[in-house]
Amino acid sequence: MKLFKQVKMGVIALVLTVMPSITQAQITNDITEGEAFKVLLAAKKNAEVQNVVVNIAVVDAGANLKAFIRMDDSFLGSIDVAIKKAKTARYFNMDTGKLGELTQPGGIIYNIEHSNGGLMTFPGGVPIKNKAGKIIGAIGVSGGTIDQDRAIAMVGAAAVVE
Rank of each mutant, 00 (worst) to 15 (best):
K44P: 02
Q6F: 15
G125Q: 14
L76H: 14
L102S: 11
P127D: 09
R150D: 05
A25M: 04
T103P: 07
A36M: 04
K66E: 00
A42D: 01
V160Q: 02
I12N: 07
A61G: 04
T103A: 11
E101H: 05
P127R: 09
P20V: 00
D149R: 12
M1H: 12
I83K: 02
V7Y: 05
D72F: 15
N64W: 13
T88W: 08
H114V: 10
E113G: 09
G118F: 13
K5V: 06
V15G: 08
L65P: 01
G107V: 03
H114P: 05
K84M: 01
M71I: 00
L40F: 00
I12D: 06
F4P: 14
N29M: 15
L3Y: 10
L76I: 07
A151W: 07
F122K: 04
V49H: 14
Q148K: 08
V141I: 07
T17W: 11
V141S: 05
A132H: 12
V18A: 14
A13T: 14
G77I: 01
I83Q: 05
T145S: 13
D60P: 08
I108F: 15
R150I: 06
I139M: 10
A82G: 05
D80R: 06
A89T: 02
I139P: 07
G133F: 13
G34P: 13
V141T: 09
K66A: 01
L119W: 04
G124P: 02
D147L: 12
T17C: 06
I128F: 08
I139L: 07
I27N: 09
E48T: 03
M120H: 12
V59Q: 02
N29E: 07
N55L: 10
D60L: 12
V126A: 11
K129N: 06
L99E: 02
G118C: 13
V59K: 02
A13M: 13
L65C: 02
D60H: 05
P20D: 00
A42K: 01
G124F: 05
G143F: 08
T23P: 03
G144D: 10
M120T: 11
L76R: 08
K98D: 15
E35V: 03
L76W: 06
I139Y: 15
G34R: 13
M19T: 06
G143D: 08
F92R: 03
Y91I: 13
V49F: 06
A57Q: 01
G117S: 11
L40N: 00
K85E: 00
K2D: 08
D30M: 11
I83E: 02
G118P: 15
A42S: 01
A47D: 03
H114D: 10
I135E: 10
T145P: 07
G118K: 10
A153D: 02
L99Y: 03
L119E: 03
A57Y: 01
I136V: 12
E113V: 14
M9Y: 13
L65R: 01
K129C: 08
S142G: 11
K5G: 05
A158H: 03
I69G: 08
K44M: 11
P127Q: 15
D72S: 01
L3F: 15
N130A: 12
K5A: 07
F122C: 15
T32K: 08
I112F: 10
K38V: 03
F92S: 02
